[in-house]
Computed example of a mutant assay.
Amino acid sequence: MVGYYKNESLTPQAKFAAGIISGFATRIVAQPLDVIKLRMQLIKLKKNRNIISTALKILREEGPTAFFQGHIVGQLHSVICVSSQFYFYELSTAVVLTRIDETHASTLGNPLEVIRVRQMIIKDQYGGLINAAKAVYRYGGITAFYEGVIANCLQMGPQMGITFAVFSYLQPLLLNYLADCYSDSCNSTTSNRHSAQHLLVASSIAGCASGLIGKTLTYPLDLAKRRLQVGSHKMDRKYNVPSTSRHLIRCKSLTKCLKVTFEKEGLYGLYRGWFVTVTKAQLTNIMAFTTYELACFALREVT
């Protein structure tokens, strides 16, 4: 199970490999919702637009491939972040810490995230990793790669701490409720203690709940982060700009971003795009935790 357990048969390196598998699978499933969520967070809307209408508009104007804009960079970012999240959590619980150190992962991954966000907005302007990096640098210099990094660090630490805490509390309760040990003893930690089916069910439910709670409690920072990450973006008429990527809401300062959003739109403004974001967070957590648990299960079976 997630976290440190005495006499665990898997090495930290094996669990890191499981985290890489988890990150790769998670990004494939979550990418389309990430594109929709980003458009809803950044665009100035004259009227409320829901997930379906936004998705249909993207599909009509840009085709199905639009939902996978920035996917390659997203895969790099996901593999780095998800694998490090599980790895640091394993290490931190081994020394009796209660929250993972996500600051380093957030800082290292921020340049990739800035590129990915801009690719999901305007593919033509930020196409390709090298070209996108050059465009980001051209518009804002080296500091552009770290736009939103403070909001990212402030958000990711608490969010991942809450997420892992909720998951680590709920999953064992659910497994104990199912009460069907896979090996000879429920107390064994040197082999798989539960069946793959029960791990899947317990991890899915706990992952769904942890995604809902973790993302909801830190959502305003997520909204501000995205608006900061397009702060230095400059619209260029020579590129095709979809209607869902026009009239971007951009920010330069975290505190001013939150303040102005609240003053103009109220509490609703701070939670614009919340539903699609939470849906994506739940799906992401379900995929991340279940894939990680099942990968660890498979590794234990062959070692």
Rank of each mutant, 00 (worst) to 15 (best):
L248G: 02
K234D: 07
C251W: 02
A209S: 13
L217Y: 04
V241L: 09
V241R: 08
L223Y: 09
G211K: 05
C186E: 12
L228A: 06
V230Y: 01
P220Q: 10
G211M: 07
L228S: 03
T189R: 12
R193M: 05
C251A: 08
A224S: 08
K256P: 03
T255F: 07
V230M: 10
H194G: 01
L221W: 06
M235F: 12
Q197N: 14
L248M: 07
C208E: 11
G231W: 05
C208Y: 13
S185F: 13
R227C: 07
P220R: 08
S232T: 14
S204H: 00
S245I: 10
Y239L: 09
T189E: 09
I249E: 08
V230E: 03
I249Y: 05
C251Q: 02
I249Q: 07
T244L: 11
R250K: 15
L212R: 11
K225C: 05
G207E: 02
K252M: 06
N240R: 14
H194F: 10
L212V: 14
L228T: 04
L248K: 04
Q197H: 15
R226N: 14
A209C: 14
S253H: 00
G207M: 07
S245W: 04
S203I: 01
N187W: 15
S243G: 11
D222V: 09
G214Q: 10
Q197A: 15
R226D: 15
N240C: 14
A202D: 02
L248I: 04
K252H: 05
T216D: 11
K252L: 03
C208T: 13
K225T: 04
K252E: 06
L199I: 07
H198F: 01
K215Y: 10
R237G: 11
T244D: 11
T189D: 05
I205R: 03
S183W: 00
K234S: 10
A224K: 00
P220T: 09
A196N: 06
S245M: 08
S195M: 00
K252A: 06
H233E: 14
L200Y: 08
S203K: 01
L221I: 04
K256F: 03
T255H: 05
K215L: 11
L199V: 01
L254W: 03
G211A: 09
S204E: 03
K256A: 06
A209Q: 10
S203L: 03
